[in-house]
């Protein structure tokens, strides 16, 4: 596999690992505090502070910038926050065995979005679709297995 792609997959796995560690840490925070949204606000504030320190490096100050890119990323941030808020609200209204299988569908929505809006950039193959569907199915089975049995 191409080195650029390999590093990309390592970053993707590192992100998945970070989310798994976060799910344990956030449970500790929420065990004596009942507001996941307030928790997310505080977590984002500290995440922003930590990231701000990284962004003052000289190489970052010289990095390319564009208003269009900033606009896309600003909306991406709002869209992700809608995801986080809606997920917490959903979990407060229905059990995790109902909500998690629906939210696990995100990769399929991303693939559909890439097919519609990233045609020249990303190639969607049947192998990718089947692989993603198996990941989604596996995550749903894991969630049901952990919460129902």
């Amino acid at each position: 596999m191409d080195k650029h792609l390999s590093i990309g997959y390592i970053f993707a796995i590192a992100a998945a690992l970070a989310y798994a560690i976060n799910s344990i840490v956030i449970k500790k925070g929420l065990s004596s505090f009942g507001s996941p949204l307030a928790g997310a606000t505080i977590a984002m504030s500290f995440g922003l502070m930590a990231l701000s320190i990284l962004s003052v490096r000289a190489s970052e100050l010289r990095a390319p910038n564009s208003k269009r890119g900033a606009l896309f990323l600003g909306i991406a941030g709002i869209s992700a926050a809608i995801g986080v808020s809606a997920n917490y609200i959903a979990l407060s209204l229905a059990p995790v065995v109902v909500i998690a299988p629906i939210t696990s569908m995100t990769p399929m929505i991303t693939i559909l979005g890439a097919h519609l809006f990233l045609r020249g950039t990303e190639r969607i193959t049947s192998r990718l679709v089947v692989g993603s569907a198996l990941v989604v199915l596996g995550v749903i089975i894991i969630t049901l297995g952990r919460h129902m049995l």
Partner: peptide, 29 residues
């Protein structure tokens, strides 16, 4: 809870597409 779960899934999915578009002329950090 189901409409909110769908909203969460769509929100995360759209975010990933916008990130791909936005990072064409922007550093990741």
């Amino acid at each position: 809870g189901i409409p909110f779960a769908l909203m969460a899934s769509v929100g995360w999915g759209i975010s990933a597409i916008l990130v791909r578009l936005g990072l064409r002329n922007m550093s990741v950090v």
